[in-house]
């Protein structure tokens, strides 16, 4: 028994492996942490691109991973409200609790869009802090990454210089990419589109695209056939060129709309891993633009 207890304490007092252990709620922040931390950080993504980020469960594997994390990166703005609080609470890890240095919220770093004037569940699944799908604008990656690199540097002083220089390299490269993407995306400016869920306001804000309608009657509530018919009638005048959905969305509503109107359906990767081409952050925007421009032809 004494040996068992001694072993237990030895196990508990093991020094943490070099570098940071990062628990990212969604793939885009995991990818960003990898860009900044390189091989020095161990990054775990709690979800993948084919899962609806609103519908995640606090499953055992997430609690096990959160338990040893030095840094939890969440989107915030209530995107993870249904599961992250339980995971944090059950993890027995004070370093990543809300308010601790090891708890980072990306949505705090950017200008939020679609902050509702009225917070009422009759409006569907609304987020009081604004639309949480901030990763569809690459300029937000710069804002989040800058703050994240600083946070990682302060949590791991030994790696601070490496994080900062990796970030500086990434940011310079990223700015050049943004300029190139903006140039390539010029034909998308002012293009009216229909979306299945309000997943892309930041993308539209960036590229100057116009959201003509949403297929969901309320956020998070799927369109019925009757509602779809109404949207078809209402959007006839706006002449939308594309109908968009994210990789994890069920195809029904957007395919139905496409069939009835002849408007091409585009499935966007939405996050890292959402398509074969979107295997990292740069690939995410490369592929998003390629798919949009291709469908517009």
């Amino acid at each position: 028994m004494r040996i068992l207890i001694a072993n237990l304490f030895a196990l508990l007092s093991l020094p943490a492996a070099a570098g940071l252990k990062v628990f990212a709620t969604v793939p885009e922040w995991a990818a960003l942490a990898r860009e900044i931390g390189g091989a020095d950080v161990q990054v775990y993504a709690a979800t993948h691109a084919l899962q609806d980020p609103h519908r995640i469960e606090a499953k055992p594997s997430l609690i096990a991973r959160a338990r040893s994390a030095d840094l939890a990166i969440a989107t915030g703005a209530e995107l993870e409200a249904g599961w992250l609080p339980v995971v944090l609470r059950e993890s027995g890890n004070s370093r990543i609790q809300v308010g601790a240095p090891g708890h980072f919220e990306a949505a705090r770093q950017v200008r939020m869009l679609e902050i509702p004037a009225r917070v009422d569940r009759a409006e569907g699944d609304v987020h009081a802090a604004g639309n949480p799908h901030i990763q569809t604008d690459p300029r937000n990656i710069l804002l989040v990454g800058e703050a994240l690199a600083e946070r990682m540097a302060s949590l791991d002083p030994a790696g601070a210089a490496a994080y900062r220089s990796a970030w500086a390299r990434f940011a310079a490269d990223w700015r050049a990419r943004i300029a190139a993407w903006e140039k390539a995306a010029a034909p998308l400016k002012g293009v009216p589109v229909v979306v299945q869920h309000k997943s892309f306001p930041y993308l539209f804000d960036w590229l100057g695209m116009k959201e003509a309608a949403t297929l969901e009657p309320k956020p998070g509530i799927e369109a019925s056939a009757a509602h779809l018919a109404r949207v078809v009638a209402q959007t006839a005048a706006a002449k939308p060129r594309l109908v968009l959905r994210a990789a994890y969305d069920a195809p029904r509503a957007s395919e139905g709309y496409g069939r009835q109107t002849g408007v091409p359906v585009v499935v966007l990767p939405f996050t890292v891993g959402g398509s074969e081409q979107a295997q990292d952050l740069a690939g995410l925007y490369d592929d998003t633009l390629a798919k949009l421009l291709q469908a517009l032809k």
Binding site: L11, L12, L14, P60, S61, I63, A64, R65, R67, S68, E90, S91, G92
Partner: peptide, 12 residues
């Protein structure tokens, strides 16, 4: 009192 083990497999 609960304890979660520092393993990738969830052990509580």
């Amino acid at each position: 009192l609960k304890w979660v083990a520092p393993t990738d497999l969830f052990v509580e």
